[in-house]
Design a protein around this nucleic acid. Structure first.
Lengths: 204, 204
DNA sequence: GTCTATATAGTGATAGAC
DNA sequence: GTCTATCACTATATAGAC
């Protein structure tokens, strides 16, 4: 494809999304103007409309691509024991989310700023992710490794607990992500009726 | 105090706060206009300024009073065992939050729309509430009833898990609040190293 | 205490020059 | 592809009549 003078579509596009991601996370979708996004990129407001038909689509695409990447990144392994799979899920969730704080923040805070159609699409992806965990819990119950009540409640409880890490964790703080992750792993396994960590037996 | 004709200060004030609570929870602080709040109350926009100096103060007072009520409502009882106290905290937290979904939603979602001064005040109240739980966890560890790593992490993990109920629970659904509460209680006690519920011994 | 009217500034999005 | 300029609205907050 020929490039006209001053053309930067292949680099400006990602920069627009990156700026929107940063500013939406910091100030909230409704409070961030297209002019503010343009200023962050270093262009005028009108130029943004070469990359998105409107502000709503910009938000939706950020949320949708985040959820798709999340879904694609977690690889369950049915060959492992449910306990090991749950431990893997826990560590994966904390690690993946800690690497994408802005996207996670937006995905949880800006749901109500999506149009109904876009909301449904994002919610469907979220439910698919939740199902990945619920399958592990069900398998664990079936295998006699877990002892819990309703698997749907347990799923939501665990995900809320894990995602909460993002509200307070900052690397360089008192504890490393590895330490935090280890303790959450312990708490999650115990909460479903498994004592101790993945490798050590539970003493109590 | 004399009442001028058309004076409704004692009833309009609460209605303004109630309208703001409802609309901020539904649409988000930044997306809700003073005109929309006025329409919900049934007055013109200018009249709102008899009850609040500005929109920011309206938000702050909603959040602050919510946090103060939360702090005042939970009564710990050091005479009980840590296990019983933790069970009580869990049930209290779920019950209190389920009764005030709008206020809870605002308290978690609109922190970034507070001025730095107001943010600090609300955060201080939140930390005081978290400390109430952490004290229970510390006592439980000291008494040998709980077995956990860092009590601060456990505190934040438990609160995130419990507050998450609000994102999906709707009364009239598949499960009653009492059933949900019971399962969360179980999961919380197990997560800190206590098997089984408050009353029964843990068989596993 | 509430109204109407308004000051002042900002919004998302578009048109057309280059 | 980006710019400048602009349209049509909406925003918060205030002033002054009643």
């Amino acid at each position: 494809m020929a490039r006209t003078a001053g053309s930067h579509s292949d680099i400006t596009g990602p920069r627009v999304r990156a700026a929107a991601l940063k500013l939406f996370a910091e100030g909230g979708y409704a409070a961030v103007s297209m002019r503010a996004i343009a200023a962050e990129v270093g262009v005028q407001a009108g130029a943004l409309y070469n990359y998105t038909p409107d502000k709503q689509t910009l938000l939706f695409e950020l949320m949708e691509s985040h959820m798709r990447e999340l879904l694609a990144a977690f690889e369950d392994d049915p060959a492992l024991t449910p306990t090991a799979r749950l431990a893997r899920f826990t560590r994966f969730h904390i690690r993946f989310h800690s690497d994408r704080m802005s996207a996670v923040f937006i995905a949880y805070m800006e749901l109500r700023n999506l149009t109904p159609e876009n909301f449904e699409k994002v919610e469907a992806l979220r439910r698919r992710y939740e199902n990945r965990l619920e399958v592990i819990l069900r398998d664990g119950v079936a295998a006699g490794e877990f002892d819990l009540g309703d698997t749907k409640i347990a799923t939501l409880a665990i995900i809320a607990m894990l995602t909460g890490v993002n509200t307070w964790f900052r690397s360089g703080g008192r504890l490393s992500l590895e330490e935090v992750s280890a303790q959450y792993c312990d708490m999650v396994l115990r909460s479903v009726g498994r004592t101790g960590g993945v490798l050590e037996g539970g003493a109590r």
